[in-house]
């Protein structure tokens, strides 16, 4: 037993290795989609590099 959350995900994914790999890719795509759709648009206004208006 190793302490590793990527290892844990790999063990939890069902099926033989190719199926695991495909599922892992799908999982990654889902995470990237969530980041692009919700997390980054939320995070961006908190960053100090994109204001273009004068007050």
């Amino acid at each position: 037993m190793r302490l590793s959350f990527y290892g844990l995900i790999w063990r939890i994914l069902p099926g033989p290795k190719p199926v695991k790999a495909l599922l892992a890719l799908a999982l990654l795509a889902g995470v990237v989609y969530c980041l692009f759709t919700w997390v980054f648009p939320w995070l961006e206004p908190l960053m100090p590099f994109n204001d273009v208006t004068v007050e």
């Binding site: 190793r2 590793s4 980054f40």
Partner: peptide, 27 residues
């Protein structure tokens, strides 16, 4: 194992930052 876990977290953080930059400057 704590070092290993720390490594995984750092790799994840690095990937997160790279993705953010890619999203911001490209996407």
């Amino acid at each position: 194992e704590a070092f290993g876990l720390l490594g995984e977290l750092l790799v994840t953080a690095g990937a997160f930052l790279l993705l953010f930059v890619g999203w911001e400057l490209f996407w």
